[in-house]
């Protein structure tokens, strides 16, 4: 029973949405409208579960005094501090209405720099990955390496100095051979998505409900 009902909901809902796709009639639109009205409500509840999970995991760590429990304390502290500043206490640092709020201050001068630093790690990691990956081990690897160098140099102004043909060659690689290969993979991905959806709708695939099958 615990599994049959969700499976039934998925099957009826899935088949209904499949048929709905082909019917533009107002009744079919009304069904779709109903769906779009309900989904956000369900998603809203899930966020409560997420925050609950985060609190529980870190609360356990703090209570057990597990290794590095101090970080967990900080997580819980800031998890609840930000909403307090955002919703309950939207006051500014200087107390003036025109000045940015504390929430804005924390967002602008703590959150943005931290997240930008995380993303900028990519530059370092790409350099090190390129150094190790692009080796002329075989004919194929050599082609890959040459293509990478041409595209990379074509993307920056330095490439324009080498001649107009250079960035053009890089763009040609991006627009034609690269796109051809990409389309082939994407086509396969598309069919995979379709097949997976069908398996879920018809109850062949049920692992997503939890556990490994029957």
């Amino acid at each position: 029973m615990r599994r049959t009902i969700p499976l039934l909901i998925v099957m009826v809902g899935g088949i209904m949405m499949m048929i709905q796709f082909f019917i533009p009639h107002q009744i079919s639109q009304a069904v779709f409208g109903l769906y779009t009205d309900y989904v956000p409500v369900i998603a809203g509840f899930a966020l409560i579960l997420g925050v609950g999970s985060l609190t529980r995991v870190h609360y356990h760590k703090v209570r057990r005094r597990a290794e590095n429990w101090q970080y967990s304390l900080l997580v819980i502290f800031f998890l609840y501090l930000m909403p307090v500043f955002g919703i309950i206490l939207p006051a500014s640092l200087g107390g003036q209405a025109e000045e940015p709020s504390v929430f804005h201050f924390l967002y602008r001068w703590v959150q943005i720099p931290i997240q930008s630093s995380m993303f900028s790690l990519l530059a370092f990691y790409i350099a090190s990955a390129a150094f190790r990956a692009f080796r002329a081990r075989s004919a194929m690897a050599t082609v890959l390496m040459l293509a990478a160098v041409i595209v990379m140099m074509g993307q920056v102004p330095i490439g324009d100095y080498l001649g107009k043909w250079f960035p053009a060659l890089g763009l040609w690689i991006l627009r034609h051979p690269n796109l051809g290969g990409k389309r082939a993979i994407q086509l396969g991905v598309g069919f995979g998505i379709l097949a997976t959806n069908l398996k879920i709708i018809f109850g062949v695939e049920r692992n997503w409900l939890g556990g490994a099958g029957r």
């Binding site: 899930a46 966020l47 579960l49 997420g50 999970s53 997503w208 939890g210 556990g211 490994a212």
Partner: peptide, 21 residues
Amino acid sequence: PNRNPIVYTVAEESVKQAYLE
């Protein structure tokens, strides 16, 4: 670790059920 709350609930259920089985 999960980034999406809905994915988190499903993942949790999935692992719990696997241990049960």
